[in-house]
Amino acid sequence: MSRSAAPNLISPVPPMLGRLLRTLVSLARAVRDRSEVKHLAEFDERMLKDIGLTRGDVESALMEPVHHRPSSMLVRCAEASARHMDLPPPHASHGRWTRL
C-alpha cells in the first residue's frame, strides 16, 4: 500500500470529542470551585465581613447553576463591597486586600 493511500491513523482529536473534553474539564472545575466556596458557608458573619462578603452573598453564589463557578460571583460581590466602603479591591492574583 502506498503512503498516500494509507489511512490517517494519527489524527487530531475530533472536534466533537474536543468540545466534550473541554465541557467535562469546565464542569470539574466548577464542582471543585463550589466545594471550596462551601467552606465559606462555615465562616461566621465577622469573618465574611472581613473579606467583603455577607452570608447572603455566599448562599446566592451556591444557588447558581452547577456549571457556573460561584467564586466568580463572590469576587464581584467583594469588589462591590470594597467600592461601597471606599477600599481598594482585592489584588487579582492573590485575592488579598491591598493598601495604597
Results as ranks from 00 to 15, higher is better:
71 S>Y: 05
60 S>G: 15
60 S>F: 09
75 V>Q: 04
46 R>F: 06
80 A>F: 02
70 P>I: 03
6 A>F: 13
96 R>H: 10
75 V>M: 00
55 R>T: 14
31 V>A: 14
65 P>I: 14
80 A>R: 07
74 L>W: 03
51 I>H: 04
66 V>P: 06
59 E>P: 01
33 D>I: 08
55 R>L: 11
1 M>P: 10
37 V>H: 03
82 A>L: 03
38 K>G: 05
88 P>M: 14
25 V>C: 07
40 L>K: 10
92 A>T: 09
40 L>S: 07
57 D>R: 06
97 W>G: 04
60 S>A: 15
20 L>P: 00
79 E>G: 00
77 C>L: 01
56 G>S: 01
65 P>C: 11
66 V>Y: 08
36 E>P: 01
67 H>R: 11
63 M>E: 12
2 S>N: 14
82 A>N: 01
93 S>G: 09
7 P>H: 05
96 R>G: 03
65 P>D: 10
54 T>S: 15
66 V>K: 15
39 H>W: 12
12 P>H: 14
34 R>T: 00
84 H>D: 10
56 G>C: 03
85 M>K: 10
85 M>N: 12
1 M>R: 11
20 L>W: 13
87 L>N: 04
40 L>E: 11
88 P>G: 02
66 V>F: 09
86 D>G: 08
41 A>E: 08
17 L>G: 06
66 V>A: 06
28 A>N: 07
40 L>P: 04
69 R>N: 06
55 R>F: 09
100 L>M: 13
99 R>I: 13
75 V>G: 03
68 H>Y: 11
69 R>S: 14
75 V>T: 00
11 S>C: 01
54 T>N: 06
50 D>M: 09
64 E>G: 00
33 D>A: 05
17 L>P: 02
30 A>C: 05
94 H>S: 15
55 R>S: 13
64 E>L: 11
39 H>R: 02
57 D>P: 10
76 R>N: 08
44 D>W: 04
5 A>M: 11
18 G>H: 15
3 R>A: 05
44 D>M: 00
60 S>W: 10
41 A>D: 07
51 I>W: 01
46 R>G: 09
4 S>W: 06
77 C>M: 04
87 L>P: 01
50 D>A: 15
90 P>A: 09
52 G>C: 02
75 V>F: 03
66 V>S: 11
21 L>A: 12
40 L>N: 11
41 A>P: 07
65 P>A: 12
6 A>L: 13
25 V>Q: 11
91 H>Y: 12
12 P>I: 11
83 R>F: 00
53 L>K: 02
70 P>D: 06
76 R>V: 08
72 S>G: 14
67 H>Q: 15
20 L>H: 00
2 S>H: 15
37 V>M: 02
25 V>D: 15
92 A>H: 10
95 G>L: 04
71 S>K: 03
36 E>Y: 05
77 C>G: 02
89 P>C: 05
50 D>N: 10
38 K>F: 00
21 L>R: 14
41 A>Q: 09
32 R>W: 08
15 P>I: 08
50 D>Q: 14
83 R>G: 01
44 D>N: 14
22 R>P: 00
79 E>K: 05
16 M>Q: 04
85 M>Q: 13
45 E>Y: 05
55 R>N: 12
59 E>A: 08
72 S>D: 04
36 E>A: 03
74 L>S: 00
53 L>N: 02
